[in-house]
Amino acid sequence: MRNNDARLLMLDRDAVAALLQPDDVRAAVLEAFALHAARAARVFPLVREELPGSAIFGIKSGDVPAQELLGFKAAGFWPANREAGGEAHQATIMLLDPRTGRPICIADGNAVTTARTAAAGALGLQLLARPDSEQVCVFGTGVQARGHTAYALHALPSLKRVRYVSSDGRREPAFEAQFAARCEVALAGGPHTAAADTAVAAADIVITATPGRAALFSADAVRAGTHINAVGADTQGKRELPSGLLERARVWADDLPQARRIGELQWAPALPAAELGDLLDAPPARAPGDITIFDMTGIALQDLTTVRMLYERALAHNIGRNIPWPW
């Protein structure tokens, strides 16, 4: 393509929503983990900085040289958005031509981030949770918590009950309605309470999807055989799991250096752990009493493989704004 014929595809929120299919996301995320495990892709150093007004800004980037896949996600957390009725999490993803450095696709990354993170969590459940798990305890009722619950229920048909912990201990009828047709859903209470500990103690799986900076439940509440997907710790100083729990568990991460910097593993950086992608060819032998943890900080490769899928589908179906971008 000549320089003056170059084009840039813009995928806004509605275009992404029209293209984003769970099965396609699961396949893209699985590919990202496989590439990472094979060391066929690179995860570049993370940018994660606090801004005025309690906002957080970050950049996750990487590439797959053999596939000519290069890009980044600029994303973060702007809590003041909620006052205007907007989403606090914001993300924009860009793919670039690695031969020229020119952008080829810009996509709204909010729904992509939710879907790819939930798909990664579901993969963690399939590889690490007990296959006979029946009850899940979910901390959070926001976009991430809903996404993880939906993907978990698809990944593990054995799940029959969802107990959720809301930030204020009050019922969230919309959260309950989303899953009521699939399983029994009920409020457990609020975090940092005896009710939260009771819900954790009864759960086979615990999913923590909050912006918390303190333990959400007691370490003693976690019984043998439990699996935990820890989602919310993605910045230095954040945590959701109680002290001492990591040391009792077998721990996996999506990317170990990143998890030791900003994930739950920042609180036990010397603790032996492994990467989830290494289990794709050989899932671990799981003793009935093992406590397992998937420390999820999210890696750029998940964003890039997912948006590449959206880009290809958008071109095939003439979706989005394909504009001239000459140089």
Results as ranks from 00 to 15, higher is better:
E240Y: 07
A150N: 05
L123N: 02
P211V: 01
V206F: 02
D168I: 02
K160A: 15
C137N: 01
A155Y: 05
P211M: 03
P211Y: 07
A186T: 12
A194Y: 02
L245G: 08
A181L: 08
I207E: 03
T210W: 01
L187C: 09
Y164R: 11
R171Y: 00
E172V: 12
C137Y: 01
F139M: 04
A150H: 07
P242Q: 10
R223N: 14
A195R: 13
G232E: 03
R161H: 12
L123H: 06
A152Q: 05
N229P: 07
A188P: 07
S166I: 10
E176A: 11
A174C: 00
E240Q: 10
L216M: 12
E184F: 10
V222Y: 02
R161W: 05
A145Q: 05
P211H: 04
G190Q: 12
A203V: 02
F179Y: 05
G189F: 02
E172W: 00
P242L: 08
L123G: 00
T210N: 01
A209N: 06
T235A: 10
G142T: 05
P191D: 09
E240H: 14
Q144L: 12
S158G: 11
S218D: 04
I205T: 06
G232Y: 01
V165E: 07
A224H: 12
E134T: 13
T208D: 00
R171I: 09
Q178D: 05
D204E: 14
L153Y: 00
T149R: 04
R161K: 14
V138T: 05
G212P: 02
A180E: 13
V136C: 03
F217Q: 04
P131I: 11
G244S: 11
V138A: 06
L216Q: 07
A122G: 13
H192T: 03
A150Q: 09
R182V: 11
G190K: 04
A209D: 08
F217W: 05
S158R: 15
R182H: 12
V185I: 07
C137L: 00
A209H: 10
G124W: 04
E134H: 13
G244C: 10
Q135K: 15
E172S: 13
I228M: 03
R213H: 15
T226E: 10
S167A: 15
L241C: 10
A155P: 08
G189K: 03
G225V: 11
R146V: 12
E240R: 11
V231C: 13
Q236R: 15
T210K: 01
R146Y: 09
R239W: 14
V136M: 15
E172Q: 12
Q144P: 12
H227A: 09
A230Q: 08
R171G: 00
R171K: 10
A209G: 13
K238G: 07
R223V: 15
A199Q: 06
A203E: 04
R163W: 05
D197T: 12
D132C: 10
A203Q: 04
